[in-house]
Design a protein around this nucleic acid. Sequence first.
DNA 1: GAGTGTGAATAGTTTCACAGCG
DNA 2: CGCTGTGAAACTATTCACACTC
Lengths: 240, 240
Amino acid sequence: MPVPRAAAAGRRGGIPEATVARLPVYLRVLTALAESETPTVSSEALAAAAGVGSAKLRKDLSHLGSYGTRGVGYDVEYLVYQISRALGLTQHYRVVIVGVGNLGHALANYAGFGTRGFEIAALVDADPRRAGDRIGGLDINPLDDLERIVKENEVSIGVIATPAAAAQDVCDRLVACGVTSVLNFAPTVLSVPDTVDVRKVDLSIELQILAFHEQRKSSGVSAEPGAAVPDAVRATGVSA
Amino acid sequence: MPVPRAAAAGRRGGIPEATVARLPVYLRVLTALAESETPTVSSEALAAAAGVGSAKLRKDLSHLGSYGTRGVGYDVEYLVYQISRALGLTQHYRVVIVGVGNLGHALANYAGFGTRGFEIAALVDADPRRAGDRIGGLDINPLDDLERIVKENEVSIGVIATPAAAAQDVCDRLVACGVTSVLNFAPTVLSVPDTVDVRKVDLSIELQILAFHEQRKSSGVSAEPGAAVPDAVRATGVSA
DNA sequence: GAGTGTGAATAGTTTCACAGCG
DNA sequence: CGCTGTGAAACTATTCACACTC
């Protein structure tokens, strides 16, 4: 079924999404190993520390290139560098956090933020009473200054930690002044042009997913009895 | 076509993970619709509001049963009920939050927590100076009381918001006293028996994933032949 | 006519298993 | 030998397109 459609495998940029999502985990483990001066790791050991299977790990790394040594494993330092590079962490990204409530506060203080390639350019909040306060060494700016801040600092990533009702508006403003990646903590679906990437982090969704599995454990796993309605409807086609 | 081998003919609990992860989004949109007293929605409208394609939405809902009406759409109230039930939200879950730093503080105040089937049974922190403080109407308990609290309240979900160094230990203790679902905010891979579900929420991983895509935008995206970088989008849907 | 529900086609991901290098 | 790198197989998920119901 030809019509190969050039999957761009192997070529630059052809790293599968699922792999990209795991690279940061490997990177974290490798960084810890580097600090304890471990020179090399096997796929087996690295995979165990990252909580994945070794075959998956090797396949993931194979998308970056051939950086292991057969019979030995991977050089820790070198692999740290290669993964950082693949993720684009050799560049610098400036971030603006909008909304300095409890969550924004937590984010502003989050140490891992500054560590690798990310820099908080500014904190912004709609509440004028908060403007001028400092958190983690950073001033809080009024929302009106958002556009100026983004442009002056060449911010490329916006973090939205506002209430749900404000999120789309803030997002539109960020996008309008050139932000191309958004991390959304507000419980809303944001709509953006498809040149912009949005990732969402949503506590209540995570809890609900856990609830689903939790429920399944407590009720006999065999069937799904449902509450009051006979739901066995599963009309799986007519199966002839 | 290779031999199919004995596939999942049995169809057990049968809702795909990917679907489970989206149901909470649909539920949120539907809840909003219910509040604005909209009686029915089409898959098209609901999908748009949830940010997915309509075919995907219909397929997702079809795993719960046949709850739509052809030519009309879905009854909002009824669908809210069916999704809630499928997710196990008709049951009640008690949650303990361990670690009341900035993030734990934010979580404790998170309104969405109490809303649907979840109840924060207790807050726990290792710092004895914090014990006795109250946040959002809840006392902070010393870490030593963790086991007692979990058992007395029949906690089934543990939320870990401690520093990375403490996370595995806290997790082990939670698991030892019967917690079967864990939501981990600490930047570590937790290891648990496979009877326990862990979901992780990790800010720096999300940022790194965004960085990857960001990098790809700024460097000439050489690998993509057909799709240029049409930027008419720059001006769309914004103003404000 | 409008819009759901679903087989079939396609795309993406994980797992297997082993060839081959150090 | 041990361990990486990788085709091929198995599985999971998305998209298409249309029969069928209201």
